[in-house]
Simulated assay, not measured.
Amino acid sequence: MHVKGRGTKPKAPWWTEELETIKREVVDLHHQLHAAKRQGLPLDQILEARKSIKELYASKMRDESTRHFREFCELQTKENVWSLTNRLLKTATPRRPPVTLNRDGTYTTNSQETAKALLDHFYPGDSPDTLPRHHELRSDMTNSPQSHYDPPFTQEEVLECLRQMNPKKGSPDSTT
Results as ranks from 00 to 15, higher is better:
His2Gly: 04
His2Thr: 09
Val3Leu: 12
Lys4His: 05
Arg6Met: 04
Lys9Phe: 05
Lys9Glu: 04
Pro13Arg: 12
Pro13Ser: 07
Pro13Thr: 07
Trp14Ala: 09
Thr16Phe: 03
Glu18Asp: 15
Glu18Ala: 15
Ile22Asp: 02
Lys23Val: 03
Arg24Leu: 14
Val26Asp: 07
Asp28Leu: 09
His30Val: 06
His30Gly: 15
His30Ala: 08
His31Asp: 11
His34Asn: 14
Ala35Glu: 15
Gln39Asn: 07
Gly40Gln: 05
Gly40Pro: 03
Leu41Thr: 00
Leu41Gly: 02
Leu41Asn: 07
Leu41Phe: 07
Pro42Cys: 00
Pro42Arg: 02
Leu43Gln: 01
Asp44His: 01
Leu47Gln: 12
Glu48Ser: 08
Glu48His: 05
Ala49Glu: 04
Arg50Lys: 15
Ser52Gly: 03
Ser52Glu: 10
Lys54His: 00
Lys54Thr: 07
Glu55Gln: 08
Glu55Ile: 01
Tyr57Lys: 06
Ala58Glu: 09
Lys60Asp: 02
Met61Trp: 11
Met61Lys: 15
Met61Ile: 02
Asp63Phe: 12
Asp63Gly: 06
Glu64Gln: 15
Arg67Asn: 12
Phe69Ile: 08
Arg70Met: 15
Glu71Asn: 10
Phe72Pro: 00
Cys73His: 07
Glu74Pro: 02
Leu75His: 12
Leu75Asn: 13
Gln76Met: 08
Gln76Thr: 10
Asn80Val: 04
Val81Leu: 11
Ser83Asn: 11
Thr85Glu: 07
Arg87Asp: 05
Arg87Val: 02
Leu88Lys: 06
Leu89Arg: 09
Lys90Asn: 06
Lys90Val: 02
Thr91Ala: 05
Thr91Met: 03
Thr91His: 05
Ala92His: 06
Pro94Trp: 01
Pro94Tyr: 02
Arg95Trp: 11
Arg103Ile: 15
Asp104Glu: 14
Asp104Tyr: 09
Thr106Val: 12
Thr109Tyr: 06
Ser111Thr: 02
Glu113Phe: 06
Thr114Ile: 00
Ala115Trp: 02
Ala117Tyr: 00
Asp120Lys: 03
His121Met: 08
Phe122Gly: 01
Phe122Trp: 08
Tyr123Leu: 09
Pro124His: 06
Asp126Trp: 10
Ser127Gly: 11
Pro128Arg: 08
Thr130Gly: 13
Thr130Asn: 07
Leu131Asn: 10
Pro132Arg: 03
His134Glu: 09
Arg138Tyr: 04
Arg138Pro: 01
Ser139Cys: 03
Asp140Pro: 00
Met141Arg: 11
Thr142Ser: 05
Thr142Asn: 05
Asn143Ser: 11
Gln146Asp: 14
His148Trp: 00
His148Tyr: 00
Asp150His: 04
Pro152Leu: 01
Phe153Val: 01
Phe153Leu: 09
Glu157Ser: 10
Glu157Ile: 01
Glu157Ala: 07
Val158Cys: 09
Val158Pro: 00
Leu159His: 08
Leu159Gln: 09
Glu160Gly: 05
Glu160Gln: 12
Cys161Pro: 00
Leu162Tyr: 10
Arg163Gly: 13
Arg163Ser: 13
Arg163Leu: 11
Gln164Ser: 15
Met165Trp: 06
Asn166Thr: 06
Asn166Ala: 04
Asn166Glu: 05
Lys168Asn: 15
Lys168Ile: 02
Lys169Arg: 12
Lys169Cys: 03
Pro172Arg: 13
Pro172Lys: 12
Asp173Arg: 14
Asp173Val: 09
Thr175Val: 08
Thr176Ser: 14
